[in-house]
């Protein structure tokens, strides 16, 4: 965002969406499709009771744990497969299999096999995301420039320096792509995990209010969490991206 105008555009575009919602809600049954003030009321009520912060926090912690797990394991596997053709040939069918395994199946099996506990929940989410990370990072590892590996070999870079100074900077665009698509996918799956087998978190609250047919509160939780994820994007992912690509020419 080079000037203030794009923010203005985004703001007025969102205001337009809000207006559309309001207009449509006026025609509908407020229990099925509540207008913005009703959702705001629900939001304030949940916030005042402390429930909102508690459930948002728990869900966010699960997202963070699953994200860290999926990124680190997926990156390691992806790099190994991208750098070693034999391993890739051996395990590519596994990757394709896991890539196409429905999230719901993984979650249900994890709960059946490992019990309704936190480890099973987070593990199930991570397993859903790992194949995506593997595929993206495998492409990145295949594209590593041999010229830089040779340089590192001749000047005897340590293993840590090879990773930090040679390999990871080349993988950065792939890591950025995997983490962007990852964080969106993961939080959606976390809600399903919570709905199926946890007694707290945004997913649990949505399930609860679905049974009470309280659409306003469902929307309040959903919007609050979307807002949290937007903040993560703006405050964490984008600044990190800018920092990691500071060496690139602005127009290159």
């Amino acid at each position: 965002m080079r000037s203030g105008f794009p923010i203005l555009w985004s703001a007025s575009s969102l205001l337009g969406l809000l207006a559309l919602w309001w207009i449509l809600a006026l025609q509908a049954d407020p229990r099925v499709f509540p207008a913005p003030p009703a959702v705001l009321d629900a939001l304030l009520r949940e916030a005042a009771s402390g429930d909102l912060a508690r459930h948002l926090g728990i869900t966010l912690a699960r997202v963070a744990a699953a994200f860290a797990l999926a990124m680190s394991i997926g990156t390691a596997i992806g790099m190994a497969l991208g750098m070693n053709r034999g391993l890739d040939r051996l395990f590519d069918p596994w990757v394709v299999l896991f890539l196409n395994l429905p999230a719901l199946v993984v979650i249900v099996l994890a709960y059946v096999w490992f019990g309704l506990n936190e480890a099973a929940a987070i593990g199930a989410v991570a397993v859903n995301k790992i194949p995506n990370v593997v595929v993206t990072l495998r492409e990145g590892a295949r594209a590593l420039d041999r010229a830089y590996s040779e340089l590192a070999q001749v000047y005897r870079f340590s293993f840590a320096s090879r990773m930090r100074d040679v390999v990871l900077p080349q993988l950065q665009p792939y890591l950025a792509a995997a983490s962007r698509s990852g964080i969106a996918l993961i939080w959606k799956i976390v809600l399903v995990v919570e709905l199926l087998g946890r007694s707290n978190g945004v997913g649990f609250q949505i399930h609860l209010h679905f049974q009470l047919f309280d659409v306003a509160t469902i929307l309040a939780y959903a919007l609050a969490f979307v807002a949290v994820m937007l903040l993560v994007e703006v405050l964490l992912l984008r600044p990190y991206d800018r920092h990691a690509t500071r060496w690139r020419q602005p127009n290159a």
Binding site: A147, Y148, V154, S161, D165
Partner: peptide, 24 residues
């Protein structure tokens, strides 16, 4: 210990000049 200059400069583009020298 070998000092090498390749046909192309082969500097790590994501490290400054000084960092490139120090890392080697």
């Amino acid at each position: 210990r070998i000092g090498v200059a390749f046909q192309e400069p082969r500097l790590l583009p994501w490290r400054t000049v000084e960092e490139n020298v120090r890392l080697a």
